[in-house]
Design a protein around this nucleic acid. Structure first.
Lengths: 195, 195
DNA sequence: GTCTATACCAAGATAGAC
DNA sequence: GTCTATCTTGGTATAGAC
């Protein structure tokens, strides 16, 4: 006779994080209770504490994991030659990576203020590291004359803000493929920095 | 002998909304308690309910007021001639209006999901109305050949996302004046839609 | 109109049985 | 490892005195 309530240690952890990610993205960290997360996973609230010391650690883990995956994936891309090729690669990467993880992207921008004072700087630093990848491309292109960029810092923020806008409207069931979105945004970014 | 605890009906209401706006922007709607708002104003929590039926109405009022002010202010601008002049006017307006109300702008984008099902469509509709102002400019410029815009809807969202990015980094104490920011963004937007 | 006091409920987190 | 049960805190909202 099999036990009706058993242990599932290898899968429960990931399922908790997946449920938390989904619920935090939908309702916001502060509005989601541990009981809701537990219910979504199919366990009791107390069981969550076998996997996370508290709710804050759950949020921190999600954001840290996302940022590390983002940086690792970008740094794994094949090297590009010209600044223009690098910029195009960045745009394509940013869009496809983000469209594959809308929930993680969402909380990475929305829930920063719900990180504890110890955790916030860690995530903020990872975010700045990623931004620096783009800023370096813009600086190089400005130097060699491929781009006309008045202020590389502001342009970096402007391009990232523009690209991030995609996740607020893109619908996987909609009329546009990821490739079409990439192409549309590349055209806009290209012109924005054009010499 | 003056009373030590009196009535201040004409000023308490606005002060409650100002405190709520500030606290919602800083910590998020769900993370702010009525007690916190009351404490910030200098009254007891129960007193708030003389001014708002509940917390949700407080959020709704803040967002609705902000959106109405935004639309009224934009529609009060002097009419412009060419599509290019209209676009420049829009960019300047959007940046200066938003930089004057960073808290209201912040919650208008972050707290939409905390609106009740009855209230959400009202705000969403106002937001779309504002976006339509920009989309109409882009359509007109596309028609008369001033702009080369692949997709007016996506470009509308891209431009607004780019402009909204300003409030995440702009610092009134920083090196840049509002006029310099307007000029920098105008240059980027102009190129983005350039024929 | 604001106060104090409180009803009522849900939150995060923990203890101990199984 | 998960359960049930519970502790403690703090939330929204209301009642009635002043």
């Amino acid at each position: 006779m099999a036990r009706t309530q058993g242990s599932h240690s290898e899968i429960t952890g990931p399922r908790i994080r997946a449920a938390a990610l989904k619920l935090f993205a939908k309702h916001g960290y502060a509005a989601v209770s541990m009981r809701q997360i537990a219910s979504d996973v199919g366990v009791q609230a107390g069981a969550l504490y076998n996997y996370t010391p508290d709710k804050q650690a759950l949020l921190f883990t999600l954001l840290k994991t996302h940022m590390h995956e983002l940086l690792a994936a970008y740094d794994d891309l094949p090297a590009q030659g010209s600044a223009t090729a690098q910029l195009r690669s960045f745009v394509n990467f940013h869009i496809s990576f983000h469209l594959e993880r809308p929930d993680a992207v969402f909380i990475s921008y929305m829930e920063l203020r719900n990180l504890s004072p110890e955790n916030f700087p860690v995530i903020e630093s990872l975010r700045r590291t990623y931004e620096t990848r783009l800023q370096d491309i813009l600086s190089a292109g400005k130097q060699d004359g491929s781009f006309a960029v008045e202020d590389t810092k502001i342009t970096t923020w402007a391009v990232i803000a523009m690209l991030n806008g995609v996740i607020t409207w893109y619908n996987t069931e909609g009329r546009l493929s990821v490739e079409e979105v990439q192409s549309t945004y590349w055209e806009m970014v290209r012109k924005t920095v054009a010499a």
